[in-house]
Write a protein that binds this DNA or RNA. Sequence first.
DNA 1: GCTGTAAGCATACGGCGTAAGCTAAAACGT
DNA 2: ACGTTTTAGCTTACGCCGTATGCTTACAGC
Lengths: 221, 221
Amino acid sequence: MRRRAVEPRTPLSRERVLQAAIALADDGGVEALSMRKLAEELGVKAMSLYNHVANKEDLLDGILDAALAEIAAPRPDADWRTQIREIAVSAHETMLKHSWAADLAVRAKLGPGRLQYGDSLLGCFRNAGFSKELTYHAYHIVESYIQGYTALVLNYRAVDPTQFDDVLARFMRGDFAENYPHFTEHALQHIEPEPGQDGVNAYELGLDLILDGLERLRDGA
Amino acid sequence: MRRRAVEPRTPLSRERVLQAAIALADDGGVEALSMRKLAEELGVKAMSLYNHVANKEDLLDGILDAALAEIAAPRPDADWRTQIREIAVSAHETMLKHSWAADLAVRAKLGPGRLQYGDSLLGCFRNAGFSKELTYHAYHIVESYIQGYTALVLNYRAVDPTQFDDVLARFMRGDFAENYPHFTEHALQHIEPEPGQDGVNAYELGLDLILDGLERLRDGA
DNA sequence: GCTGTAAGCATACGGCGTAAGCTAAAACGT
DNA sequence: ACGTTTTAGCTTACGCCGTATGCTTACAGC
């Protein structure tokens, strides 16, 4: 009776709650993550969660920051472009892995994960000799691209591939190809990718374009 | 008694429902848009909406597409870069105006508005001599950037400017500036913008970087 | 051992999307 | 002109959701 405290129940903690929430969101998306289901997953009743989390918004902020904290820091000895590419690729992959993170990233709250990530990206530019002002804009541009491309890939992945035939049929139906010829062409490229190009990925291509341009700006417009 | 049909009630229609939904979302965001509130706004009960809209998802798809349809077509006589810039700027402004549109844009459904917009952007590239393959990637890159930058601006706008002092205080508090020096510098630039730079905007700067790079790719890597 | 505090629980409220079935009015075939 | 079908809107109800309030229980520090 005295040792019962030890055996059946590992006490909750913010860590455990966030962990479980991430697991729940990883399969099923954010919309599948409710306080009640999360509690059940933890063998607990819904209101108990509020001892470790202020409310659902706090929970979402928490798992978002935990995800962003997974973004790998760049190798410190690499040159600046390599470093930025490493950050960008890691951010992309992390948000693809936690497919809900891209949705949540549209929220202002600054946790340590986000701060670390942002600081490291900004530091790459500053250390590479970018001015304060150019760094300011470069950060926004690169950040936008990372965020946007990731969202695009996830959006594309959200369409069930078994429905490709339906989509294809729709685009072949007379007036579609007539009214939207270029979009039809584009959609067909998605559905029947050329050998050597896998569905969508030009992520690093676009990133390099941007870094090229930024470098040119740095070296005197 | 026979003329009563005429006087008090304009009958609902999909158009009117979408219109009211857009108005409701424009102030208050998507989370303020519920079937019940929307019905009330229209002087009707919730279930009546389902005569004109399949379900809430259909409603959201509807207002998103209506918003995207507002994106202006480019002047047909302009040169390709100007055309793309016009589309990109119009898309940006439209989504800033309907601040919920950027959130919703992360959904696969293809309505006529989106098709028109996408087709027109793709057409610019094709007409400018971009190959099928390069256009495929150029579209993804530009689309990502537009989407991402818009989301970033909206995210920034979501922080209440009256809280700037709090944020500033947080960044000045000792260890913050120490742990995240670059982010601190960046945040200060947001809060105390240099004269001549308004908060965030390098949208067109980044766009030009991308277009420069794409043009170079077109003209032979 | 007592007591203050924190963790978990039970109950309840108001809001949500929407399924099912009803009524009344408009549209249509004859 | 009339009966029938279709349609628009309403009522009710169900099962989710986040969470306010107030309880019990168990552990920590004196």
